[in-house]
Design a protein around this nucleic acid. Structure first.
Lengths: 207, 207
DNA sequence: TTCTGGAGCTAACAGCGTTAGCTTACGGCA
DNA sequence: TGCCGTAAGCTAACGCTGTTAGCTCCAGAA
């Protein structure tokens, strides 16, 4: 028995914020706009038109555009957290690392622009539901079994994901092999003991 | 002898674009603005004021704000390429992977907002000097010795870098250990043979 | 001397997030 | 029934953004 609780998280899934029907409408429409028309198309005026109102009326439901984006990103983190925790609870035949990475890639790919928003430098992460990022990232710690290795694995996953989404890898690359190369590097036995397992959450900023 | 030419790149450093004195002024001022005041402060009006002109006059020297950003990013890629190629030619005692990563981290950290700009999803990479990205990223291929492993290493480097710059790792983390964990994972012998070394450049989009 | 082109300027446009202030409709209560 | 308060819409407008049109001025060449 180690300090790592396999398959059983030590953080808990936060309670999502309640949303009025109109708020849910707006978030749904915003996601559609973001994914079908692109990041630049997500403006208050476009969004308002999509739900049949004028831009200033949105402010009756959300304090700001940033608050609306927070709602989008919280959805993304719940989806990602659910996918990752599920992959950890039920890893595939290729092992826990490959399984986790596959879940991460699949989830991010399903909503590329929302993933970009979630991971963008400018995003006001401090406004997110407390504990949400930690919970969503916990599977990296569970799989890596060590804080710094889990950070490195997370960094590999995010780096590969954003470069793939942005089309940065050389044309003709079989990206499955790139992911596989990383999975292998982080799966090799003998790698773990990098440092003396300081108890630090693997993901997210402390509030 | 393998197909990997250690220490001798197969791509060549592109010739930088020539700039008028005024263009150089603008790029220098833009970098200062970007790094000292932040990304949002880099506006045409602010920049113009900094060099003693009005915003529309900038268009006598650059076609658009994007063209000015391309100049900034080309500087970043030349600096990064020089640093990485140097680290490959003269690796430190911790081995080529750790040396490369240290150079990458040091270079990016010296101009964080320029690094963010360079790697941002929205940046018009197609307007960059042909071959510049390939040349700058080549050291990853030289060090990894295999296309897909080099892509994975690059992805780890970028992922760790952007998460570090954005303060995404848990408070109290010793990020040296995170980088070290990744360096170790990608340095272990036995890792390489992921695929049959298809000859694909490690970094950047084919034109 | 005249002409040409580079490099500055002001004024203005469309689009952005956002605010102020007005109106309308609905639900609870005396 | 009549009143009141609140929720949720609206228009007009503000300051900011990148950018364009069109003017002026000056240096250098013919």
């Amino acid at each position: 028995m180690t300090e790592v609780h396999r398959g059983l998280g030590v953080t808990s899934r936060p309670e999502p914020r309640v949303r009025s029907a109109r708020m849910a409408d707006l978030v749904r429409a915003a996601l559609g706009l973001l994914e079908t028309e692109g990041t630049d198309a997500l403006t208050m005026r476009h969004l308002a038109e999509l739900v049949g109102m004028r831009a200033p009326s949105i402010y009756k439901h959300f304090d700001s555009k940033a608050a609306l984006e927070v709602a989008l990103v919280e959805d993304a983190l719940f989806d990602m957290g659910d996918a990752l925790h599920h992959s950890v609870a039920d890893p595939g035949p290729d092992g826990p690392v490959a399984s986790l990475l596959a879940a991460y890639r699949s989830e991010a790919t399903s909503h590329p622009n929302r993933y970009r928003l979630t991971t963008s430098s400018a995003f006001p992460r401090a406004d997110l539901l407390v504990g949400l990022e930690d919970w969503a990232g916990e599977p990296f710690f569970i799989v890596a079994g060590q804080a710094y290795l889990s950070q490195a694995l997370w960094a590999f996953a995010h780096g590969t994901m954003i470069l793939e989404l942005d089309g940065r890898f050389a044309g003709g690359s079989d990206l499955d092999l790139t992911w596989q190369a990383g999975a292998l590097a982080f799966s090799l036995p003998g790698a773990p003991p990098v440092a003396q397992a300081v108890s630090v959450p693997p993901v997210g900023q402390q509030p």
